[in-house]
Design a protein around this nucleic acid. Structure first.
Length: 510
DNA sequence: CTAGGGTTAG
């Protein structure tokens, strides 16, 4: 909604004058009054609804305007009743009505109502409208009805890019990157949104390398990278630890003088943090900091990740000082910062304050951090007490960190129970069997350790080799478990033993 | 006459 004809404090005056003059019976005038109301206060949907009922002659525009307000206020369930009333009344839906309804029905997953819209669209001959077609494809795809989406594609002799993009993105979200890529290659033309959908699909499916090469391809076609592509590609670079590439993107943003939205700033900071360049992250943050919670969360979490718990707490205080309201993610960052830095008291204080001072209910993630914090500090039984206090079912991560604590602090009995629970929760996760077997081995119970290995084999659970990536001077190096294939393997192992010696000399016990 | 689409959020 842009700006309406009757704006500001004059709106009620216009409304009153229209009533007196009788102009209120002109649907165009009345429609504008309705729109002006929602323009002045987008949350005034109930008021708008009452106003709409007060009009004797109602236009499609009026209904569309109220539908739009429902969507903006995240009330898609209100759309169907309004649409039914629209049909009962004198108004015929027009080409603007269908995209709004399809969006609402996709949201609340009304398959049958959506397919009714589909037939209405065909009957009205509106299928070739690019907006409608894209919305229709998006509707089917978001409910997982790919067959229906393809049928709808065939009904339009030349589907718009947006429809192709919706279909592609549907496959990408369902995890079928092969199908997504096939559509991407087949589509007659691509715009920056199509590239964005394809690239973010790769990132979402943990294929950062593919995302990166697509990004290169995109630049080669002279397509200007949109900020949503940049957000996705920075996540991919963060994932890969590709600092040089990340810096290059940062330079690209500055060279093109692109607007740095809070999202973009946050992705940049996240990239620097994940690539280990905390200094640049901090530098950027100080230069570009704004009111966005996400931005502060990224920085607080990043400091914690690098073991700088004190600074994370300081940054939190600073954030509160700036009058920025923390959210649940802020506390995930803070609690994990405390956990990484072994700050038990501070963590407990933080956990208590989130509900009392900031009225944020702790979620599973927060309990998870607390269990981790207590377990890492050797307070295994306090961790158990925390789990008992949880109002929700503990997840695998929580049992996993309790298990880790049991192993480190020699709580064999509890550890065995938790390990078995974990294996039963996720019987297809090879890592869990290995952990349990290692626990038995640690306790000298070799027979049991072998038993777990056998169970793994009989259930057909295979172990994939672990892998890590590191970037040095602009080259990404990949290492698998027990990998000795690297060109400089000798130098690398020399360095590792030197580091181990230094750590031992400093009193660190692995 | 006014308004409606496909991507995104670490």
């Amino acid at each position: 909604m842009k700006r309406a004809i009757f704006s500001g404090s004059l709106r009620p005056l216009f409304h009153a004058r229209a009533i007196i003059s009788g102009e209120i019976h002109d649907p165009f005038v009345a429609g504008n009054i309705l729109e002006s109301l929602l323009c002045a206060d987008p949350s005034a949907h109930s008021q708008a609804r009452v106003l709409l009922s007060s009009f004797t002659r109602r236009s499609a525009f009026m209904y569309n305007t109220v539908l739009h307000a429902y969507l903006c206020n995240d009330l898609p369930a209100y759309a169907l009743p309004l649409f039914l009333e629209m049909l009962r009344h004198d108004s015929t839906p027009n080409k603007h009505t269908f995209p709004l309804l399809l969006k609402a029905f996709a949201h609340i997953r009304l398959l049958t109502s959506g397919s009714t819209l589909h037939s209405m669209i065909l009957k009205h001959g509106l299928i070739s409208d690019p907006f409608i077609h894209a919305s229709l494809i998006h509707f089917y795809v978001s409910l997982g009805f790919f067959g229906a989406a393809h049928c709808a594609m065939d009904e339009n002799p030349s589907p718009p890019v947006s429809a192709w993009t919706a279909l592609l993105s549907g496959y990408a979200k369902s995890g079928d990157l092969i199908a997504a890529r096939k559509l991407f290659d087949e589509m007659p033309e691509k715009n920056s949104v199509s590239w964005s959908a394809m690239i973010s699909g790769c990132v979402q499916s943990q294929l950062p390398c593919e995302a990166l090469s697509l990004f290169q391809e995109m630049l080669a076609t002279k397509m200007a990278p949109s900020s949503s592509v940049i957000v996705s590609i920075l996540i991919a670079m963060a994932e890969l630890g590709a600092l040089q590439e990340g810096k290059w993107v940062h330079a690209l943003l500055e060279r093109n003088q692109m607007f740095l939205s809070s999202n973009l700033k946050t992705s940049l900071i996240h990239m620097y943090i994940k690539c280990g360049d905390l200094w640049s992250a901090k530098q950027m943050f100080e230069k570009l900091r704004d009111e966005s919670v996400d931005l502060w969360n990224a920085m607080i979490g990043g400091l914690g990740l690098h073991g700088r718990g004190r600074e994370a707490l300081q940054m939190f205080d600073e954030m509160i000082g700036e009058g920025i309201r923390p959210d649940d993610m802020t506390f995930v960052g803070l609690l994990s910062a405390c956990s990484h830095s072994g700050m038990v008291d501070e963590g407990q204080k933080c956990f208590k304050s989130m509900r009392i001072l900031y009225s944020i209910e702790p979620k599973v993630e927060h309990y998870s951090c607390m269990v981790d914090l207590l377990g890492k500090a050797g307070l295994v039984w306090e961790a158990v007490e925390t789990i008992k206090m949880m109002p929700m079912e503990p997840d695998e991560r929580i049992w996993g960190s309790l298990f880790g604590a049991c192993r480190v602090y020699g709580e064999m009995g509890l550890g065995e129970a938790v390990g078995k629970k974990l294996v039963s929760m996720e019987p297809n996760e090879p890592g869990l069997y290995v952990l349990l077997a290692n626990l038995y081995a640690l306790a000298g119970r070799w027979q049991d350790a072998v038993g777990v290995r056998k169970m793994m084999k009989s259930r057909g659970v295979g172990l994939e080799p672990g892998c890590s990536l590191i970037e040095v001077d602009g080259v990404v190096h990949e290492f698998l478990v027990a990998d000795r294939a690297h060109l400089w393997v000798g130098d690398i192992f020399d360095k590792l033993s030197e580091m181990a010696r230094v750590l031992r000399a400093e009193g660190c016990v692995a």
